[in-house]
Structures are given as structure tokens and as C-alpha cells.
């Protein structure tokens, strides 16, 4: 090998790492495009699509929320193998509130996000004292057992579930709320993770003892991160419950655990935008491959393994590099 690939930051990034001097419309566009273009594209596609694909976009958005939530947890040192737990708790909470008290979805969904987040956090609180592996094990177990408990005891509607729940006012409202929520979660959490608060969370993931010796209560911080992440996932659960006007055992299904992980790994772990991108690739893909039916999870799981072993970087960091850097081959002297 006498050549190597050289990467050079594009002009605008070279000048400063955090403060950009914007001197032209072109540069503004360069910065804004990657943020604005996806928002607009999704909006236009969503409004133009037929009812079926609108529903797919809505579902995808909810999976994207689950994936973003997974990524936030992972960045804070908590690997969840059971996003279905948070999703399911949120789904059942809003379903119960609507079924028994007759409250409107506009009230039950936000309430379920908060209550669901709180319940999930309380359930997992003891695990936070231990290494990450325990978190993975317990989150994997919980949705499976809860599902079985509901089946066995018949609580919360048992195997039948509860149907006839109130739906959201209008299909378009549903779609727009889903989209807004995705972008709020993405940009909000990105800001949070880039702040010093997020820095401490990443520090806990990296080296928790040093964080402790800095006088920071890591259990509290982890619990806070868990609450934030599980609330987002619980929101997704509550939202889907009202979108399908039904809540039942399937909300604890493996789909809701594996897809967020697969989306994140395919999109790029730790980037938050990656999980979103991953979800918007994988979910519509599975809709296109509907004929395969049960093979869906097999495909996700296989993709997951292929990416984590072969392409651990993920798609988003790759795209980002192409966008922000020039690449060229240069001769290398021996």
C-alpha cells in the first residue's frame, strides 16, 4: 500500500469546532440542510401518502422514538434488551386510564408517558446499582414475564386485551403529532446529550468510578436518564394504543425490543439521528416485505448481527463523514 485515504474537513468546519462564522447563504444552507431537509421531506411524503402509508409513517415514527430512547439509555451505560417493557407499560397505562376513567387520549397519552416512565424506572431502580449486564438481563426478562403474568392471571383484560379505546381526533392529527414528537425527541435529546448534563451521563458509561469521585450521585443520574428514556418509549406505547384503539399482550412482544436495537445498530449507535434513520429504513422495509410474515424478526435479528460484527459504525456516521469531509487518496512514502 503506497496510498492512503486522507480526510479533510470541509471549509466551514475547519474554522472553528463549535462557533461557526456564517458568511453566506450557501454556508447557512450547508448547515441547515441536513436538519431541515429530513423534516420537510417527511412532512411532504406523509401528507402526500395514502392512508395506508400514512399509518406506516406513524408506526415508523413510534419505532423511531423507541430506538432513540434505546440510544439514550445505551449512551448512559444501560443496554436495554426489552424496550417492550417501557412500551408496554405506557400502552397499558393509557389504555387503563381511557377504559376505566374515560379520559381523552389527549390527556391519557402524556399522562401515560410520565406514569409509564415512573413505573419503569421504579421497577428497574435496584438494577442501576449493578453493572450494565444486569440491566440487559432484567430488561429482557421483565416484558416476557409480565406478558405471561397477564396471560395467566387475566388482569388488565387478560389474553383478550381491551378494545374499543378512544382514538385520536383525526388521522392527520395523529400523523402530525407523531412527526412532531419524533423531531422534538431527536433535537431535544441531542441537545441534552451534548450539554454538560449529557456529558456526565456519557462519563458514567465510560467510567462510573471517576464520576462518583467527582461528587456526583450516579444512581440518581442514571435513574433520571432512565426516566427520560422510558417516558419517551412509554409515550410511543400510549400513542400506538390509541392509534389502534386496542391494548393487549402483544404490546410486550419481541418486536418492540428487537426493532429499536436493530434500528440503532444499523443507523449508528450513540448518534441519536442514526436510530431514527435506522427505524425509517427498517420499518418501511418490513412493510414492503410483508409477504415474508414471520420472517420479519429473523431479518431484523440477522441484520443486527451483521451490522454489529461487520459494520459497527452504522450508516449515519458514514453519511455524516461524507457530508462534512473531503476524501482523497494521497501517495504515502514508504
Amino acid at each position: 500500500m503506497s496510498r492512503r485515504r486522507e480526510r479533510i474537513d470541509r471549509g466551514i468546519k475547519v474554522r472553528a469546532d463549535d462557533i461557526y462564522a456564517l458568511t453566506s447563504w450557501r454556508e447557512m444552507l450547508y448547515l441547515a440542510a441536513p436538519r431541515v431537509a429530513p423534516v420537510l421531506t417527511l412532512l411532504v411524503v406523509g401528507l402526500a401518502a395514502g392512508p395506508y402509508w400514512q399509518r406506516v409513517i406513524m408506526t415508523t415514527s413510534m419505532f423511531a422514538l423507541l430506538a432513540i430512547s434505546w440510544d439514550v439509555l445505551a449512551a448512559s451505560g444501560m443496554v436495554s434488551l426489552g424496550q417492550a417493557l417501557f412500551f408496554g407499560v405506557g400502552a397499558y397505562t393509557s389504555g387503563m386510564l381511557n377504559h376505566y376513567f374515560g379520559w381523552s387520549p389527549l390527556l391519557t397519552i402524556p399522562l401515560a408517558a410520565v406514569i409509564g416512565g415512573a413505573i419503569s424506572t421504579l421497577l428497574l431502580l435496584p438494577v442501576l446499582r449493578l453493572r450494565g449486564l444486569y440491566f440487559a438481563m432484567v430488561t429482557l426478562i421483565m416484558p416476557l414475564i409480565i406478558e405471561r403474568v397477564i396471560e395467566a392471571t387475566g388482569i388488565f383484560g387478560g389474553t383478550e386485551g381491551i378494545s374499543g379505546l378512544a382514538s385520536l381526533p383525526h388521522r392527520l392529527v395523529e400523523l402530525l403529532v407523531a412527526m412532531v414528537m419524533v423531531w422534538v425527541a431527536l433535537f431535544g435529546l441531542r441537545r441534552l446529550m451534548d450539554s454538560d448534563y449529557g456529558l456526565v451521563l456519557k462519563g458514567i458509561n465510560d467510567n462510573d468510578r471517576s464520576v462518583m469521585s467527582a461528587g456526583i450521585n450516579i444512581y440518581r443520574r442514571k435513574a433520571e436518564a432512565l426516566f427520560i428514556a422510558s417516558s419517551i418509549a412509554a409515550f410511543a406505547g400510549a400513542f400506538m394504543t390509541h392509534a389502534y384503539m386496542f391494548v393487549g399482550m402483544p404490546v410486550f412482544a419481541m418486536d418492540y425490543s428487537i426493532l429499536p436495537i436493530a434500528s440503532t445498530v444499523v443507523g449508528g449507535v450513540g448518534t441519536l439521528a442514526g436510530p431514527l434513520l435506522g427505524a425509517f429504513i427498517l420499518v418501511p422495509l418490513s412493510e414492503l416485505l410483508r409477504g415474508l410474515g414471520g420472517l420479519r424478526i429473523v431479518i431484523y435479528a440477522t441484520l443486527l448481527v451483521v451490522f454489529i460484527v461487520g459494520l459497527p459504525e452504522g450508516i449515519f456516521p458514514y453519511l455524516k463523514r461524507k457530508y462534512t469531509q473531503f476524501e482523497r487518496w494521497v501517495e504515502v512514502e514508504k
Binding site: D196, Y197, L199, V200, K202, G203, D206, N207, R209, S210, V211, S213, A214, G215, I216
Partner: peptide, 27 residues
């Protein structure tokens, strides 16, 4: 405060950001 015998930095963070963690301490 203490140091660790085996240096335990936040490996992924830039050197100066390592200090932002203790600087974020309530103390």
C-alpha cells in the same frame, strides 16, 4: 477527592471535557 492508581479517564471524551464532569459537580 482522590486519584486512581490506574488512571481512569473518560476515554471517549476530549481531555478538557474530562474535567467538565467534576466541574458539573454540585460541590
Amino acid at each position: 477527592a482522590r486519584t486512581f492508581q490506574m488512571a481512569k479517564p473518560f476515554y471517549q471524551l476530549p481531555a478538557y471535557k474530562n474535567l467538565v464532569v467534576p466541574l458539573s459537580s454540585p460541590r
